[in-house]
Design a protein around this nucleic acid. Structure first.
Length: 256
DNA sequence: ATGGTAGTAAAACTA
């Protein structure tokens, strides 16, 4: 089972790129972030024509997440538990017919630091840690996939010093990411690839992609029961080189 | 220190 995560930066502006990639890569499950569409604006006809079921949590203009699956899925959650006041569309969770739980997340960016957006990011990460603990107690295999908006280590960014004060590189953000891993979750990519400088995001500005000035901020974190079945993981750079590309490229992991 | 790009949606906000 191939599971992928792709921050598409608008599903409507990116639809040909996305359907081309679905046909070429053929993931079984894909978590999408920043679809930037309300539920009724989601191109469900085209996605179904591509062979996928969809669970969509949309929002006007910003954010928005979805999970696509080749086989039917049951929606478990349409928001991250822990704050009923939180209206931002950043979390969706489904279960496959095989009993595999997939959480798709778009973690808040958090800039500028300090400020209410950074506070929201840290509170959101605390909620994610709590929810991961709840999922671990189910003892079902699960993955938490998405755009984490955190640069975990200096190996995951072209210029660590430039990002040290940014919300993505701040110690408060990293600490919470490590706490998540230390619950027993596995960064799928790092099981197979120890090389520094492997990125999943390149800014649109300053020719960042051509200069390979990127960050690795998209992750597929696997629970112990899921990690036992890991057979591969990687970053598919090809969509980022296309015309009208997203600023992110898909990451993937394969489970037996 | 500034501004460089992209998307949404209609001027400013988010990233």
């Amino acid at each position: 089972m191939k599971i992928a995560s792709f921050n598409v930066n608008s599903i409507r502006a990116r639809l040909p790129n996305i359907t081309d990639w679905l046909a070429a890569f053929s993931p079984d499950v894909v978590c999408l972030q920043e679809i930037k569409a309300q539920d009724e604006q989601f191109p469900i006809t085209e996605i179904e024509a591509a062979g996928y079921h969809a669970a969509v949590v949309g929002q006007k203009s910003y954010n928005g997440v979805a999970i696509l699956s080749r086989t039917p899925i049951t929606t478990r959650l349409r928001a991250l538990p822990g704050d009923t006041e939180d209206e931002q569309a950043r979390y969706v969770e489904v279960e496959t017919e095989a009993g595999f739980i997939v959480g798709g997340l778009y973690l808040p960016n958090g800039n500028p630091v300090p400020g209410p957006k950074f506070d929201y990011k840290l509170a959101w990460m605390d909620r994610l840690i709590d929810h991961a603990q709840a999922l671990l107690r189910t003892e079902q295999p699960f993955v938490l996939c998405g755009d984490y908006n955190v640069i975990p280590t200096d190996a995951d960014v072209y210029d660590p010093r430039a990002m040290a004060g940014d919300a993505l590189g701040r110690p408060e953000s990293k600490d919470r990411f490590y706490r998540l891993l230390n619950l027993g979750l596995t960064d799928s990519f790092r099981v197979f690839d120890p090389r520094p400088g492997q990125f999943s995001y390149w800014d649109y500005q300053r020719g960042a992609y051509d200069k390979d000035h990127g960050w690795r901020i998209d992750f597929i974190l696997a629970s112990p029961q899921a990690a036992d079945r890991l057979t591969g993981a990687g970053i598919d750079r090809s969509p980022r080189a296309q015309e009208k590309a997203s600023d992110h490229t898909p990451v993937w992991a394969e489970f037996a």
